[in-house]
């Protein structure tokens, strides 16, 4: 296994190695209880550990969106309750899943890449392999499972916090009253949009976790490589999340 750590190649080599890594991550566990424990630890790291920053950023995004929509609508004939509707729809369809996952790519992605990179460089991964542990399924599988579970939950929290931010900012600035805003929020609930939001969240969660794990797991060389692996993890995750966003929007909205 360590063999391939030292190998480098072009994009096709990396895509192939990435696909193999993901496939091996879902292999049968040696001891289910150990994997379950590790999955819970990762759920706590990814989910609970990111809750505050996601809520904080979503609140301000919702608030700024409400104020700016209200400013634009105030010069038109469109009724002000429409602010609530637009904030709700944009949070659910785009802002909550995409912005949350870009934030998570920075926070969780760099964390995962440096954790695995450090384990690789300090031979902890080799130690697991010598014991006969499937390092892909023990180290990466629980992280993927935790991300696919926790990121949609974080995105639900993000959407709710963003809509609340819009409500508070709209009424605090006097652009739109609470009742008008809530009228807009309750207007025309499209179930499919929530499904799209959750699908995006699960896919983005998988992308940012698997790319970050790949960068960390195959880090090699000196300590400086851990920093480089973290940076690559964040940049690539962000690009791939946005690319997947485009593909999913095209597939799911058509």
């Amino acid at each position: 296994m360590a063999e391939y750590v030292h190998e480098t190649g072009g994009p096709l080599f990396h895509i192939g190695r990435y696909v193999l890594m993901v496939r091996r991550s879902f292999a049968n566990p040696e001891r289910a209880s150990m994997y379950w424990k590790e999955t819970l630890r990762q759920m706590s790291n990814i989910g609970v550990g990111s809750l505050v920053i996601i809520m904080l950023i979503s609140f301000f995004i919702g608030a700024v969106s409400a104020v700016q929509f209200a400013y634009n609508l105030s010069q038109s004939m469109v009724p002000m309750y429409f602010v609530g509707y637009v904030v709700k729809e944009s949070m659910i369809l785009e802002l909550a899943p995409t912005i949350s996952c870009l934030i998570l790519a920075g926070k969780v992605g760099s964390n995962l890449a440096s954790e695995l990179g450090t384990m690789r460089l300090t031979e902890q991964i080799d130690a697991l392999e010598i014991m006969g542990v499937n390092t892909f399924s023990y180290l990466i599988g629980p992280k993927l499972a935790a991300a696919i579970t926790m990121v949609p939950l974080l995105v639900i929290v993000s959407a709710a916090t963003g809509i609340t931010g819009g409500l508070l900012a709209g009424s605090a600035t006097g652009y739109v009253s609470s009742s008008d805003y809530l009228q807009g929020v309750l207007l025309q609930f499209v179930q499919k949009n929530v499904f799209i939001m959750l699908t995006k969240a699960a896919v983005f969660g998988f992308i940012l976790t698997s790319i970050s794990c790949y960068q960390g797991f195959y880090a090699h060389g000196s300590a400086i490589e851990i920093g480089k692996a973290s940076t690559r993890a964040v940049v690539l995750s962000c690009i791939m999340v946005l690319f997947a966003d485009l593909i999913l929007a095209w597939l799911l909205l058509n």
Partner: peptide, 27 residues
């Protein structure tokens, strides 16, 4: 097989007891 690595290769997030116990828990 048992292997002692150059830098110890102990799992940072586990205590001494958990490190030594790890193979027993797993296998």
């Amino acid at each position: 097989l048992g292997m002692l690595f150059q830098g110890g290769a102990l799992f940072d997030s586990l205590s001494v007891e958990q490190n030594v116990r790890f193979p027993l828990d797993m296998f």
